[in-house]
């Protein structure tokens, strides 16, 4: 198992490098002279040339990329064109907020989606199951930003129960988590239900029941373990989508997170900050993919057996 983790960890490095390269290349094509953005009214030929040399913008594309990666490895994301402060500091200040929102959405999505999925998979023709299936169908089609606005209208404006913006208390986390998580919750629920439905018909479930194992243990021990694989895949795939959706959630709820920073920096044409935000989000996706792979290996005995005879 340890060998597996180490191997996957090393496989992540080229992927992160490649993603950085892709993002760097796209941003390299940003039209216009960055020194215009930085210097503003103080722009002059000489000042511009001097600044370009200082920032290394006069070098070739490959050299610029090389320097960027070199700095990145040392934890240096470069300097913002607008605030002239290190991008890393801004990311450090903003990123925890993004993580909190994503974590909140994940808790909601797994905590509500999986149990409902299991229940409606075990009792597929019940009223509850039908209602949740319709809700799930509607849920996967709900735009995050619209749901966010509706939640604000209902819970902040009409009822006045929850704050509509910011992220300074637990109460202010509820609406963003619901808005961001609902879509994926519906997805997780549908997946769990359909894989549960499939597993529950298998012979070994009947065998377990015939042996006299009680219903609860059959569902939770025998069926669930086998039904979880597709759910984990969907949860894993959703982390990327959640990080994309967080841009919208942060916009709707005015949360000072990485997504907000990204949009603000795009509008201000602050390329280093845009790059920093994109890189850090891509690294998050890569890490979450890795975690999913590890969980997979932990659950699937075939992968476990391949590395260290199932004991690791």
């Amino acid at each position: 198992m340890f060998k597996f983790v180490v191997k996957r960890l090393f496989a992540m490095i080229p992927i992160i490098l490649a993603v950085t390269f892709v993002v760097f290349t796209i941003m390299y094509f940003t039209p216009g002279d960055p020194t215009n953005v930085i210097l503003g009214n103080e722009w002059s030929e000489t000042a511009s040339a001097q600044l370009k040399a200082e920032l290394g913008l006069d070098q070739s594309f490959i050299m610029q990329f090389f320097h960027y990666v070199k700095n990145l490895v040392q934890g240096n994301f470069g300097m913002s064109y607008i605030t002239r402060a290190p991008v890393g500091d801004q990311l450090l200040a903003r990123f925890p907020n993004t993580l909190i929102v994503v974590a909140g959405a994940m808790v909601f999505c797994v905590g509500v989606g999986v149990p409902i999925g299991i229940y409606s998979g075990v009792k597929p023709y019940s009223l509850f199951s039908n209602v949740t299936m319709v809700a799930g169908l509607l849920g996967v089609s709900l735009p995050i930003f619209w749901l966010g606005l509706l939640l604000i209208l209902l819970f902040s404006v009409q009822l006045g129960w929850l704050p509509s913006s910011g992220l300074d208390s637990f109460a202010s986390l509820i609406l963003p988590s619901l808005a961001l998580g609902s879509n994926y919750m519906a997805n997780v629920m549908r997946t769990t239900r359909s894989s549960m439905l499939e597993v529950i018909r298998q012979d070994y479930i009947r065998t377990a029941k015939a042996k006299g194992v009680n219903e609860r243990n059959v569902v939770l021990k025998h069926a669930l373990q086998n039904a979880m694989m597709p759910t984990i895949t969907v949860i894993g795939m959703n982390i990327g989508a959640l990080l994309g959706g967080v841009v919208l959630t942060e916009t709707v709820f005015s949360i000072p997170g990485t997504g907000r920073l990204l949009v603000e920096s795009i509008n201000k044409r602050d390329t280093p900050t845009v790059l920093g935000c994109l890189v850090i989000m891509a690294v998050c996706v890569a890490i979450s993919n890795l975690v999913v792979d590890i969980i997979y290996a932990y659950i699937d005995p075939r992968i476990k057996a391949q590395y260290g005879g199932g004991k690791g």
């Binding site: 992927i15 992160i16 993603v19 892709v22 993002v23 796209i26 941003m27 990327g240 989508a241 990080l243 994309g244 959706g245 841009v247 919208l248 990204l262 949009v263 795009i266 845009v274 994109l278 989000m281 891509a282 996706v285 890569a286 993919n289």
Partner: peptide
């Protein structure tokens, strides 16, 4: 490319 959520790639 799949490492970048599609909204983010489109944004970039």
């Amino acid at each position: 490319f799949l490492c970048l959520p599609d909204v983010l790639l489109a944004l970039a």
